[in-house]
Design a binder for these strands. Sequence first.
DNA 1: TTTAATAGTTGTCATATGACAACGTTTTCA
DNA 2: TGAAAACGTTGTCATATGACAACTATTAAA
Lengths: 189, 189
Amino acid sequence: MYNQLEQYLKDNSNINSESIQKVTSHFKPLKTKRNEILCSVGQVCKNFYFINKGCLRMYEIDSKGNEATAYFALEDQIITAITSFVLQKPSRDFLVSIEPSDLLIISRDSFFKLVETVPEFRDVYNKFMEFAFIHSQMRIYSFLGMEGIDKLRWVMEHEPKLLTRISSKAVASYLGMTNSTLSKLRAQL
Amino acid sequence: MYNQLEQYLKDNSNINSESIQKVTSHFKPLKTKRNEILCSVGQVCKNFYFINKGCLRMYEIDSKGNEATAYFALEDQIITAITSFVLQKPSRDFLVSIEPSDLLIISRDSFFKLVETVPEFRDVYNKFMEFAFIHSQMRIYSFLGMEGIDKLRWVMEHEPKLLTRISSKAVASYLGMTNSTLSKLRAQL
DNA sequence: TTTAATAGTTGTCATATGACAACGTTTTCA
DNA sequence: TGAAAACGTTGTCATATGACAACTATTAAA
């Protein structure tokens, strides 16, 4: 149940067994179906998730009704509706399972209590933030001024799993294009 | 000299006078001209900056020779070529002054020593990361699938200073469009 | 101050992409 | 299993934006 999370903690800090025990004890298993909403627009996000199996997606719906995906998280990754989780303001995003998923869930209170009391867990959080930021920068850069075909190639190179596993529609919303455009670009390759 | 930095530290943590003293003592003043390069592509970024006066810009040049601006930092903000600074890999970005600027500079070694030894400074760093990430998310979202005119309106609403202070060319590279397009959009308003 | 370089504006034209629709395929769930 | 919904593909057409160029305005440097 906690093997993957333990490995994640070890990979991202110099954490010892005792602290691992302390940290993992605050995570509870949660099974979701496909398309289950973990955080909805307007809600204040109260939880943080580790993915044992499955896939979550964070996205918003803009003023024209179009979806824009911020990111996807697969196995052995952590995710939350970060802006809302951090600032405790109503979320502009949906956090949704796009596959039936086995998750580990921790409340915000427990999460930040651990951040304060377990230095290694604080390191894990900071690394997560750094990674999230760096990933986000890569996308801004990579996508600004890039043509559709190049965005597609970028994802093929950097996040190929997305293309095999996730619906074209969702990938298109991640690339900032319509699904019909993505379909035509795929045909061009 | 250190008034603004002190205020910044106070605004972003519950730091006491002693720690303020300890932190600020590691920052050294640095005056730059216009268009001075603080970190170049290929360099590993070794410093972190606080801006007393002036403006810095972080950008990259893509494979087609087009500039893409990640962000601008004005007075009372901190900035570095973050990805390189964090990962200590050669930077893909330029960090450049776009005005003559009065900066405070701290080396990466001192910076992370402070992060480890001064809990309040660690908080400041984490807040910076959180802010940087959240800002970056806002842009990804806001710009994905948005038309040029709406991106321009977004900046007018969220970062109006950029439009009055920074060259159109640089703003265009921040919005992911050419300067001629930006110019035409401005005429439309 | 003068000259050169840079930046901004505007026009024309080509093109990538969105909007929409038609259609076939796959998935869902009763 | 069968019906309905969702998804993916492909076509047509309209349009926003890039590329390029010509010109003006502004800024920098000698």
